[in-house]
Write a protein that binds this DNA or RNA. Structure first.
Lengths: 184, 184
DNA sequence: GTCTATATACAGATAGAC
DNA sequence: GTCTATCTGTATATAGAC
């Protein structure tokens, strides 16, 4: 898929993860791939159409990665570690999670976009819960899986946010240490 | 202090915590208090001047609150609980932390603004470490205080971010439960 | 599908009167 | 300190030619 539509979403995703959704303009996006802004409007009539596709693609891509991890015959701890590794890759690129970034800008999004954003976070939390419930004996804490999932997800999102400003990965590393210690 | 300058910073803070720094325009800010945008420029020549004052005021206000908490003859657990309560008040207003919001928009800020933002987060983390070191026997975990401070702060920032999108306070509550359990 | 050209709105910022 | 008026740049979005 090297057509302009997919080149647009790819470039747009990078811009949003770095500069935010408000930091993405049809003009700069068009320049990025060498077309005009009116051509971007051909593919995505309104900016909210682009937002929708970005959130959908990001969610689907992540869901596929998580499916692969879940299917492996490995310890729960290693599954959680793989989950955290996804955030570490984002941090390495000095980005935020696409949806974490858009969460900060939720007021600029229409109702449909907001729903997709919500579903993204709930999907990630549900994945954690499902993994724990499949291998419950490997959990070392008495914390309820759903509570654990909520702290872990929001903790990782916050770590990306603060670490990028401070300029290191200390908070993400600390979150990793904290949560991995809860699994055998 | 009911002069226009302080009315401006007060209104600006609310707008940034709700809509972000890019969501704050001199025009709408001026309208908010009934003056013209050119008058806003009299008080804050450039937008970065306003950003600077916002971060400084927010930091100073929070530092004063934390000083008061630290001075009380109460348990470490109650001090941490009071710390978390500050975030709960922000969540109750459906806002983000001013600096958490601006952290997402760090690319729009100049170097000076970014330094003040960094200092804000480091100040909060340092406060947690100092409180723990003053009452070390009341800590139930073997986690290093600096590690604990980093996870707690970024966890709370992330909880505000995700909870606002999802529409409840479950993540902040979960973070609270997780961290309070680490103190006697 | 992409282009040129344009409409409309709003952004940050400045000059100069009062 | 605040105003009117304006400059300049950029944003989303659309019409219509190719």
């Amino acid at each position: 898929m090297n057509d302009n539509r997919s080149r647009l979403t790819k470039a747009a995703q990078e811009i949003v993860q770095r500069n935010g959704f408000k930091g993405l303009s049809f003009r700069t996006l068009a320049n990025e791939i060498g077309i005009k802004s009116s051509s971007v409007h051909y593919h995505f009539p309104e900016k909210s159409d682009l937002a929708q596709e970005l959130i959908e693609q990001y969610s689907e891509h992540l869901a596929l990665e998580l499916d692969e991890i879940a299917a492996k015959p490995i310890s729960l701890k290693r599954k959680i570690s793989s989950f955290i590794k996804i955030f570490e890759m984002v941090a390495k690129a000095d980005n935020l999670c696409l949806c974490g970034m858009m969460a900060a800008e939720v007021g600029e999004l229409n109702q449909s976009n907001q729903q997709y954003l919500r579903d993204f976070f709930l999907m990630l939390e549900r994945w954690i819960v499902v993994q724990i419930e499949a291998q419950p004996d490997e959990l070392k804490t008495q914390m309820a899986p759903s509570q654990l999932a909520k702290t872990m997800l929001s903790g990782l999102e916050g770590a990306l946010l603060v670490d990028r400003v401070v300029g290191n990965h200390q908070r993400l590393n600390a979150q990793k240490e904290l949560y991995l210690a809860l699994f055998k």
